[in-house]
């Protein structure tokens, strides 16, 4: 029986880009890129099985051992702290966790700051390290609306190009955490499949280093 390595990939552009790296690392599965709504793909010859999952769920699949490895943003790892290994920084999907506010906003520190965010733990940790009292408003999306409508003073959110902020007349106050996609592994899976997981990690490191050399 083939001892498959099960990989959870985040649906979307990042997942497709990461898959290309996996394929170059020797874990190709061409059917994965075929159009359609299938979510599970496997290549018996390479001993690999892929699942497309919602990006924020990748760590859940890996922590529960359904997937042996997966690719997830550092933001999700820091926010939810799943009990998984963080084996490698793939160097793709780069962005920043940032504080943003309406143009002209200045924090006078005279009152509790209201912060709207999807990333409650990250925001709490950041402001606690600054010794700043805050009220958190947890939102699930369209975070940029909060300061515009007066729901919060600032937001803590992911900033990639800054276009959405600009279009809503918001500005970055501070970028405080660089984010990129990470290769994660289930701890029990690693115990039994360390050879193949180490081979994958080594190949991904080689591919990243080649890409860096090309950029330089």
């Amino acid at each position: 029986m083939t001892d498959y390595i099960n990989v959870a990939l985040p649906k979307g552009r990042l997942g497709e880009r990461v898959y290309e790296m996996f394929a170059r690392a020797g874990f190709e599965c061409p059917a994965l890129l075929s159009p359609g709504r299938r979510l599970i793909f496997e290549n018996a010859e390479r001993g690999v099985r892929y699942f497309w999952v919602k990006p924020s769920d990748v760590a859940i699949y890996v922590e529960h051992g359904v997937a042996d490895v997966g690719v997830v943003g550092k933001d999700i790892l820091t926010e939810y702290r799943p009990d998984v290994y963080e084996l490698f920084d793939l160097g793709v999907g780069r962005c920043d966790m940032a504080v943003a506010a309406k143009r002209g906003f200045s924090d006078d520190r005279l009152r509790t700051l209201t912060v709207a965010t999807k990333f409650t733990s990250i925001a709490k940790a950041y402001y606690s390290s600054q010794g700043r009292d805050i009220d958190i408003i947890h939102l699930n999306g369209s975070i940029e609306l909060a300061p515009i409508l007066g729901l919060s003073d600032v937001i803590v959110d992911i900033v990639e190009t800054g276009t959405t902020l600009k279009e809503n007349d918001l500005v970055v106050v501070e970028k405080f955490m660089p984010i990129s996609a990470r290769l994660i592994a289930n701890k029990a899976s690693y115990a039994f499949k360390s050879d193949v997981i180490d081979r994958l990690t080594g190949e991904l490191a080689r591919i990243r280093s080649e890409a860096n050399d090309k950029d330089n």
Binding site: E63, G65, N186, A188, A191, F192
Partner: peptide, 9 residues
Amino acid sequence: GFAEGAPSA
């Protein structure tokens, strides 16, 4: 200790 089939120690 890990046992195959269990997702954690």
